[in-house]
Simulated scan of single mutants.
Amino acid sequence: MQDTKLTNPNPDYPYPKAEFKRFAFLKPLITNPNILVGDFTYYDDPDGPEKFEQNNVLHHHDFFGDRLIIGKFCALATGVTFIMNGANHDMSGLTTYPFGVMGNGWDEDFDIEVFKAQSRGDTIVGDDVWIGRNATILPGVSIGSGAIIAANSTVTKDVPAYGIVAGNPAKLVRQRFDDRTIDRLMDLSWWDWPIELINRHRTIIQGNDIDALEEASKDLGDYLPQQ
C-alpha cells in the first residue's frame, strides 16, 4: 500500500508545527560545526528546544575537537544530555584534580596534550534512534541505528543497532528484532532513501512487514540518475 500524501515538513525549518514550539528539528538550530544532526531529528522540551547546544551538550570545548554526530529521524525527549570529552580529567597521575586549568601559577607546567589524551573520541548516534527523557550519554559512546534508550538511563558503552537499553549504567534489555531482521533493516536503511520515496511508502515504514519494506525498496531505481 502506498501513501497518497506525498508531502513532508521542511527539515531546514525548526518547527514542523508552528503553533507547537516545544519540539523542533535540531539541524536548523545547530551552530557549532562539531555538532552534526541529520534531517528530521527533533528535540522536545516544554521550555523550548532552541538552547539544545548550550543546555544539553555539556563540556564540549573547541580545543578537544570531538564531535557529536546524530543521525536522521531521531527522537530526543526532554532532558537528554550528552556529556562530551571536556568533562574528563587526567587520570595518569596520583590525582585527578585539574590544577592546570585554574591558572594563577598552577598552569605553568600544564600540558594540554596530556589532557586531550583522555578523549574517548566522537559521540555517535545512528539513525531512527529514540532517546528517552533525562537519559545521559557519556563521551565516545556509539548508539546503533534503531536503538531505544530508556528514560533516565546513563549510557556508558556502545549500544547495538535495534537494541533496547535501560538503567544506570545502561544495560541491554533485549533486541527489538531477531538478528536476521536487524541485518535486513540495516541493509535497507530506509532513512537514507530520497524523501520522495519515504513519503511514497511512509505507511509501510511505519508498519511491521519487512517483506513489504524490501519490496518498496525496489522503487529506489526510480530515483537513480538517468544515464
Rank of each mutant, 00 (worst) to 15 (best):
I198R: 08
F73D: 13
D3S: 15
E53C: 05
P11H: 06
I35M: 09
A135Y: 08
G207I: 00
L197D: 00
G207N: 06
R184K: 14
F40G: 10
T156R: 13
P14R: 09
S142M: 11
H61L: 14
K218P: 02
H59M: 11
W130V: 06
N55E: 14
Q54W: 08
K21T: 10
I143P: 05
S142P: 04
A77F: 06
D219P: 01
E108F: 10
L76D: 05
F64V: 10
R174K: 10
F73E: 10
P194I: 07
P14C: 06
Q2W: 09
Y42I: 00
P194E: 13
G100Q: 01
K27W: 00
N134C: 07
H59S: 14
V114F: 01
E50H: 06
R67Q: 04
M186T: 11
A135D: 11
D12H: 04
L172F: 03
H201M: 10
H201E: 07
N34H: 13
I204S: 02
I69K: 06
N55P: 00
P49K: 07
D209A: 07
T78A: 15
T41K: 04
P139I: 03
G100E: 00
A150C: 12
L213S: 05
I143R: 02
Y162V: 04
I131T: 10
D211R: 00
H89Q: 13
F40Q: 08
G140P: 04
D122G: 10
W190K: 04
L68E: 02
D178M: 09
N152F: 11
I124Q: 05
I205G: 02
F52R: 03
A212G: 05
V125H: 07
A151D: 05
R180L: 14
D122Q: 06
D62V: 12
L68W: 03
G167C: 00
H89S: 08
I195K: 11
G71C: 00
K27H: 06
A75L: 12
F115W: 15
G221R: 11
N152M: 11
S145A: 01
Q226L: 13
S153F: 02
G79C: 08
A75G: 15
A216T: 02
E214D: 12
I137V: 14
A18S: 09
I148P: 00
K5T: 11
P139K: 03
L138F: 12
F40I: 08
T4F: 12
K157A: 14
S92Y: 09
L76I: 09
G100I: 00
G132H: 02
H61E: 12
N85T: 08
L29G: 07
T181W: 07
D66E: 15
E196Q: 15
I198D: 03
R176A: 09
E53A: 11
N32S: 15
D127G: 06
I182L: 06
I148V: 15
K72P: 02
D222R: 15
I210S: 03
S142R: 14
L197T: 04
N32Y: 07
G146K: 00
R120Y: 04
A147H: 02
L172S: 03
E215M: 12
L197P: 04
P139V: 01
D12W: 07
D12E: 14
D111A: 08
F115D: 09
T203Q: 14
G132A: 03
V165Q: 06
T78Y: 14
K218S: 13
L36D: 04
P225M: 03
F25E: 00
G100Y: 01
A24H: 01
F63G: 00
D90N: 13
F64E: 13
K27C: 03
T95W: 02
I182S: 05
R133Y: 09
D62E: 12
